[in-house]
Design a binder for these strands. Structure first.
Lengths: 154, 154
DNA sequence: GGTTGACTTAAACATATGTTTAAGTCCGAA
DNA sequence: TTCGGACTTAAACATATGTTTAAGTCAACC
């Protein structure tokens, strides 16, 4: 048996890259951006806690639904310093993204209808169209997590 | 009266910028990218046909629904060399975007549901989740206008 | 203890969509 | 004819999201 129990084994960046499917270069980048953390060995190499695997998976899933890293980072920063994310945390983060996605869907629907209307009306005057000069009536994105901040932390 | 009738007057880049609300720098950029055209004076300055105003409006409206310039350019290139866009053209372009928007809306809806499910199921295993490693089942964007190319040009 | 592969950093490069800047030229009006 | 503002170009800068590269260090195995 090794000196370190399997369930507390840390991951090198190569292992984390392999197991998460995310290139090491991207992992370093996430760290620079404050999305993940690592401890350093005496030789200055990164070692990751196993839960980082899940955090990275969350980052990728969030990116895949179109959330920018900066916003993902804001949400992850609700995790206190060294805390392992709880189920409660993931559920609330997921609620955040659901709201965000719903907002985007509605926006796209409005866009689609407006565009069709704009061309379809016959006057072809996009010049006065909301789509051409959106005075932010359409562009409300809400910028950031509201749901997560208005409750007790994990 | 001037030597040039009002309805054939060309626009300088400054005038086009002013009237379209798009900075001259962006107009030059659009031209480099092949989205708009201009003739040059003997002194090498740009002069725009009045219909360019409408083309620019179309570009901005398209951008505002999230279509990348490259795709907008593909659509605009269905306009023959010096041709003024017809109503037919705008209608078909609009159909293009409507399809595109519908596809995106559906994709976002799938994403939203998947994310909720993924977290809600209790196992918290995003590692196996489609969202984390999308094998392009979710990511079908279709890349480019299909509708416009499968009909008679304007 | 030596070799080799994995790790380290900083900085340049990539893409999309432009903006800004520097240095210079043209045009219209007095 | 001259002046100032509008125009020209190329190139650098900006943002987000990384990747690549160069040069060097560490760690693990034989």
């Amino acid at each position: 048996m090794s000196t370190v129990p399997w369930n507390t084994k840390e991951l090198t960046i190569g292992e984390l890259a392999e197991r998460s499917g995310v290139p090491a270069s991207a992992l370093r980048f996430y760290e620079r951006q404050g999305l993940i953390r690592s401890r350093r060995t005496s030789g200055n190499q990164r070692r990751y806690h196993r839960t980082t695997l899940r955090v990275v998976a969350f980052i990728r899933a969030s990116q895949n639904v179109g959330i920018p890293l900066a916003v993902i980072g804001e949400v992850l920063n609700f995790l206190p310093e060294g805390a392992t994310p709880t189920r409660e945390f993931w559920v609330r983060a997921s609620d955040c993204w659901r709201e965000e996605l719903n907002a985007r869907i509605e926006r796209l629907e409005r866009m689609r209808d407006l565009f069709t209307e704009c061309i379809g009306c016959g006057c072809l005057s996009f010049e006065q169209c909301l789509l051409v000069n959106p005075g932010d009536r359409l562009g409300e994105k809400g910028s950031g997590p509201h749901r997560l901040s208005s409750g007790a932390p994990a």
